[in-house]
Amino acid sequence: MSGAQKIAVTVTAVVPLNDLVTRFEFRRTGGGLLPTFSGGAHTVVEMRDGDTPRMNPYSLMSDPMDQTSYAISVRRDDVGRGGSLFMHNNVAVGDEMVISNPVNLFSLDLRAKKQLFIAGGIGITPFLAQIKQMERLGGRWELHYTCRSEALGSYVDELTTQHPNEANVYYDDQDQRIDLKALLDGQPIGTHIYVCGPKGMIDWVRNTAAAEGWPREGIHYEEFLAPQSGKPFEVKLAISNKVIQVGEQESLLEAMERSGVDAPYLCRGGACGQCETRVIDYTGNFIHRDHWLDDAEHASGEKIMPCVSRFEGKTLVLDR
């Protein structure tokens, strides 16, 4: 089950922002409203790259209250598996695409007295929607946003013009750094922290906050993993009664879908748990990469998250 009904959309704008990031805007094909969503939600964009189907999650960055159009921003990844390159090189205004209903794995805790947003690079996108939501609801927020350089500072002008008191921008190439300890120290009780960016930044914020005594429930982060390539392997799917080959450049989940097996998923990035699959038998080693299963489950050999995890060995039989 791949979940809710998909949404057919038409690309209405392709806006290059800088050398790396391009914004894509969608409206519902044939007219009509899109679902509302909550700030922090993502949509899974389906691409037809020749014979290769691709499905990448992207944060919705448009106003959650605006049902006429959605916007995402895609950072080009020249060494990735090709989804972002396809978006940049092949998607044009007027193209029809299919996207998923919004799914939010990074939602605001609405009990918070204040929302403290910490973004690195393209990690700004979920915050753009959350900021619009907070503005509409009249909530208190503050943004600290690090970019490599002014040239690569996506949406910096818009943020600093509209929110001069809330938006703080730091440029790596000018050696500007967030003084995180001081920042956390100055927050009122009841503040929640949200961090989205590179793994190193997420770890830095989580570890610093934990060391400063912040409650675990007050720290929220979103890190989508892109599936990584690896050695090809063979899998037997017991329920479907199929033996499939997982190629070097595709994930186990993608290989199942390519073979016509309707496997569940939501985030396709190792975070949500929806694609969790029971292992019936194996001889070999798992390469677990997800955030969902705990260490004991990883060690047990009983479960695998096919969206990001792989296998090396002789036999793998899955309950799918």
Binding site: A4, N101, P102, L266, G273
Partner: peptide, 11 residues
């Protein structure tokens, strides 16, 4: 609970 946490919009 696992099932409910993953209930999606439109489903």
């Amino acid at each position: 609970l696992k099932f409910l946490l993953n209930i999606q919009q439109g489903a």
